[in-house]
Computed example of a mutant assay.
Amino acid sequence: MNKHLVFLFIFLAGINSATGADGIVVVANIKNKTMQLTRQEVRNLFMGGAIPYQLKAIALPANNRTRVFFNTKVVGLTESRVQSYWAQMRFTGRKKPPKEIKSEKLLLGYLIDNEGAVGYLPASTPLPASLSVLYTSN
């Protein structure tokens, strides 16, 4: 039994450090460097809801740990619930999911090159001055 507890502890510690235990930042390439978003506005942006800004959400792929952490902590849904939601939206033709970029590094490059693009990254990611942090989650 103790062997199982030790394994569980090591497993959970590994997940915690690999999924963004340092938090998530939602960053954007925008001119207004003072803009901040609430958690609900971030959720709406990434789930296709209405927000009062001209921003384009960019996501990581479904198998990415940062995305799973973001969906759980910020959006408030499990990855499977998010996938189900987008499947329904695509089927009914109502909304399109955010564009997906394969990795955090490529996402950062995309954000730098595309004005109005918004994405999420681990809080420990070094950010260039051209990007603005819109929301931070621990």
Rank of each mutant, 00 (worst) to 15 (best):
12 L>Y: 11
64 N>A: 04
104 E>Y: 06
90 R>S: 10
34 T>D: 15
86 W>I: 06
84 S>T: 14
11 F>D: 11
87 A>E: 14
84 S>E: 15
22 D>H: 10
92 T>P: 00
73 K>Q: 10
130 S>T: 13
35 M>D: 06
25 V>A: 04
27 V>M: 03
93 G>F: 03
88 Q>W: 05
102 K>A: 15
15 I>H: 05
40 Q>A: 06
19 T>P: 02
121 L>T: 07
59 A>G: 11
104 E>H: 02
25 V>S: 10
35 M>W: 12
86 W>M: 05
24 I>W: 07
126 P>S: 06
3 K>D: 13
17 S>L: 15
70 F>E: 04
68 V>S: 09
30 I>F: 07
107 L>Y: 07
50 A>D: 14
118 V>I: 12
130 S>C: 08
20 G>N: 07
100 E>K: 11
5 L>A: 12
63 N>W: 10
29 N>H: 04
67 R>V: 04
14 G>L: 05
5 L>V: 12
80 S>H: 15
66 T>H: 01
75 V>M: 02
28 A>R: 01
132 S>Y: 04
3 K>V: 13
114 N>F: 00
138 N>S: 15
31 K>D: 15
115 E>T: 06
9 F>K: 15
110 Y>E: 11
130 S>Q: 11
9 F>N: 14
6 V>F: 14
3 K>T: 13
17 S>V: 14
92 T>R: 12
